[in-house]
Design a binder for these strands. Structure first.
Length: 462
RNA sequence: GGCGUGUUGGCAGAGUGGUGAUGCAGCGGAUUGCAAAUCCGUUAACACGUGUUCGAUUCACGUACACGCCUCCA
């Protein structure tokens, strides 16, 4: 079983060769914590969770170090703290809590480290000092420190850009103080009223990219195995990280493999707040969409491709998982075990999760229930959030809903007993309209809520 | 303008130089008071052009279309 990874750097699929078999090191750019995580944020979290599980399986539970950072200093956070009249710390700690809850809901394993940018300010300052002393960076009069892209001759290699052609685009704001318009901020001066730290260049805060260079160096070392994130981060974020790290550390490489996941669209449209098609994990949870369903949809398209999030896909995922869980309940397979080779092979082929899911169907056809259960758990698609654990604070309301549904089902049963099929059909149609799907078994009727569940319809007469 | 990705059956979505993806939907059947669920069977695709090849959906080149990045963004 050999893992292959598509490497953005080489634009080809390569066999994965670890630097140290006993310590596979991976760094993934995590969220900037200023708002609820949307499904676009959830995608890399789930994708790299699969990679983390796979690496642990191949190289051993204790031989993988997975770092997913948290950016807790940033303009967006500061703006929100001003507009909501809350401290930066309040905003970030609340958002971090939400993020953790969402990840739990999505059955995402905790990374080895989740460093916060604000805890690594001294490391950032020291890295910037090195860059200044090596003339890879320069200090302006007001204390702003900029990285000089001309000082790094392979700048643009990762994103396949060259300095000249980037300049032709008219989107670069010309700042005369910059030696090259593409020079980017390492340290930004700020007023004493704002969040900031003392530095050799005065009171200020770090630029966007330096945090990842500082944290990855501190936790993983100068060069590590895999660096991941969203496709939009290739330029400028990762390009700049490479430049900073290589210049500061005097190494040839930052990461051997670069992996980037595609964007998420909503019903064919680019997700954006202004279009009103902005979906958070919390929105979906409130709509009774199980974490496993979200996970399934996110894994049903290959991670490199754009993913179109549609309600149809959610319904399909829900139906498939319902079916799978019913089979699983019947089979009573043991909990522990290794997924079959065809599942692992598909995962090893650059995380081909759509193929994995289709092989899951095939396992059922072959009646390999043990292999199926093992795979389900391996993929994190096992039902950890039972329906009843959703919105636990709303248990009372839930109980009421349960009561009404059970009452209607009881009425239907009586009607059927009396061969009053007109009445029983009416009840069934009403339940269906409300998003309750019913299933007549030999001596009982089971029901489940569909994503379009709307309790109001239950309360209307006729 | 630069860089990059994609175009597969009704929909979603893998993959392959020659044979089956898979799921949903559809169609036929079993079962059912009806429905759902389940089971059996089944139809159907590789944007266009040229080239390479015994053979191309798969490789190369070109065309068209779509999308992304180059500005904060996962």
């Amino acid at each position: 079983m050999k893992l292959k990874i598509y490497n953005t750097k080489s634009k080809t699929k390569e066999f994965f060769k670890p630097i140290d078999l006993n310590n596979i090191r991976i760094y993934v750019c995590g969220p900037t914590v200023y708002d609820r995580a949307h499904i676009g944020n959830a995608r890399p979290v789930v994708v790299f969770d699969i990679l983390y599980r796979l690496l642990k399986y191949i190289y051993g539970e204790k031989s993988v170090t997975y770092v997913r950072n948290i950016t807790d200093v940033d303009d967006k956070i500061i703006n929100k703290s001003i507009s909501q009249n809350k401290s930066v710390d309040e905003i970030t700690s609340e958002t971090i809590k939400w993020f953790a809850e969402d990840n739990k809901y999505l059955n995402v394993e905790k990374p080895t480290h989740e460093p916060k940018a604000t805890q690594y300010i001294p490391q950032m300052i020291s890295m910037i000092e090195t860059l200044v002393s090596k003339k890879n960076a320069y200090v302006l009069e007001d204390g702003e420190v900029l990285f000089s892209v001309n000082s790094f001759n392979t700048y643009g290699f990762l994103s396949r850009q060259n300095l000249e052609s980037m300049m032709i685009g008219n989107r670069i704001i010309i700042d005369k103080r910059k030696r090259n318009p593409l020079d980017f901020v390492l340290w930004k001066p700020t007023s004493r009223n704002n969040i900031g730290w003392n530095s050799p260049w005065g009171y200020g805060r770090p630029g966007w990219h330096i945090e990842c260079s500082a944290m990855s160096k501190e936790i993983l070392g100068d060069t590590f195995d895999i660096h991941g994130g969203g496709i939009d981060l290739i330029f400028p974020h990762h390009e700049n990280e490479v430049a900073q790290s290589i210049c500061a550390n005097n190494k040839r490489l930052l990461a051997n493999y670069w992996m980037h996941n595609g964007f998420v669209n909503i019903e064919g449209q680019k997700m954006s707040k202004s279009l009103g098609n902005y979906l958070t994990v919390d929105d979906l949870r409130r709509r009774n969409i199980d974490g496993a369903v979200i996970r399934f949809v996110l894994l049903s398209t290959h991670y490199k491709q754009p993913l179109d999030w549609t309600s149809r896909k959610v319904d399909e995922a829900q139906n498939i998982l319902n079916k799978w869980y019913n089979i699983n309940n019947k089979q009573n397979s043991k909990i522990n075990g290794i997924p079959p080779n065809k599942i692992l092979d598909a995962l090893c082929d650059d995380l081909n999760t759509p193929l994995v899911l289709s092989e899951m169907h095939n396992l059922l056809k072959e009646e390999d229930y043990q292999g199926f259960t093992n795979s389900l758990i391996f993929l994190g698609l096992n039902p950890i959030n039972s329906k009843n654990s959703i919105n636990s604070q709303k248990d009372q309301q839930k109980e009421k809903v349960n009561e009404i549904i059970n009452l209607l089902i009881h009425e239907r049963k009586n009607a059927r007993g009396n061969k009053d099929f007109k009445k029983s059909d009416k009840i069934r149609i009403k339940l269906e309209k409300a998003g309750v799907s019913i299933n007549d078994l030999e001596n009982e009727t089971k029901w489940t809520l569909k994503p379009n569940f709307n309790p109001r319809i239950l309360l209307t007469e006729e």
